[in-house]
Write a protein that binds this DNA or RNA. Sequence first.
DNA 1: ATGCTAGTGGACCGATCGGTACAGACCAAT
DNA 2: ATTGGTCTGTACCGATCGGTCCACTAGCAT
Lengths: 186, 186
Amino acid sequence: MNEAAPSSRDRLIAAAARLFRQRGYHGAGIADILAESGAPRSSLYHHFPNGKADLGRAAAEWAGAGMLRIIDDSFANAPDYATGAATLCHKLAKFFDISDHRDGCPVSSVLYEDTEETGLRQAVDTIFEGWIAATAAHARRLGVPAEKAGEAAETLLMAIQGAWILARARRSSDVLRSIPGRLPEV
Amino acid sequence: MNEAAPSSRDRLIAAAARLFRQRGYHGAGIADILAESGAPRSSLYHHFPNGKADLGRAAAEWAGAGMLRIIDDSFANAPDYATGAATLCHKLAKFFDISDHRDGCPVSSVLYEDTEETGLRQAVDTIFEGWIAATAAHARRLGVPAEKAGEAAETLLMAIQGAWILARARRSSDVLRSIPGRLPEV
DNA sequence: ATGCTAGTGGACCGATCGGTACAGACCAAT
DNA sequence: ATTGGTCTGTACCGATCGGTCCACTAGCAT
């Protein structure tokens, strides 16, 4: 009986994240998010007093944490960095496929805000850097020389971002799966 | 006296492309585009009967053609593929800088449409494949083995897309300039 | 002069946008 | 039993969204 009904706050965040990564920040309206989550309108402004911007940040952070888990899972049992990176790419490709080849990066979509005043851009960057730092830590742990680990991690995440875009344009996850074979040696 | 006043059609396309790459497709409103271009509202619907979707496609194609020119310029006088690729990345970094570190890919922003019915996604993909094909042609011309040229070109464009995103999050073009040093050998 | 077309001015539209106001429901602690 | 918080139901708001309508002008051919 542990499948407790998620709070409307959580449902709002999940719905927002889902819609943002498909239609983009501006493309997903409040009404859509409300409908998708089943949460009442008043709850949104109760939990997120500043409305969409607050929700956008929460959704980005929530999705960012999810991605962080995927990164950790991928590298946890990996014998070396390259294998972990390959696992990560394949996991992401799988998620992309089951989203009907629609869902790109859940965080970067939020980059298309008039970001400076809301601080959203800053928040997105912090999330990205968190991914890179986590990946770099795994790289070092798995034997990548410390002075190369940061760059290798940045390269991997950059490639994933690019592949997500190309994958959405093509509606195919192939390019995501091809990343491991294209990474420079480490 | 050759600087003929651009037609309102051209001004609309340029303004739309400029705004889309900063704020995204949904983030840039018709009113913004009209104001930025100085063109009258009626002209928009005269030249683009289907409104924003038509304009979006035209803007993406126009910007795509511009990118194609940049690609060709970069490889035209290059002694080898790697040098051409490096030139391309540095050119893009420069454009990014003079846009106040805001302008990402002018084409991918349009990917956040409910693209299937308007055919916009398809159009975006065609533009991308055009870039890749052009880059691959330069690669072959510059001595890259034919069976590797396509993949090398795809890798480069993918990296550029990812770097554009990261650059926007960081408001720094550094990552764009770092691409050449991270590409696998060809 | 006439007709034809491309392009424009300007007023107007319903729909949707994101957001607000406020009373009531629920539930723990006292 | 009453209080005080969190959360929700309902109704409403002005602003903006993308789009339409139609009369008009400019230019050019006949």
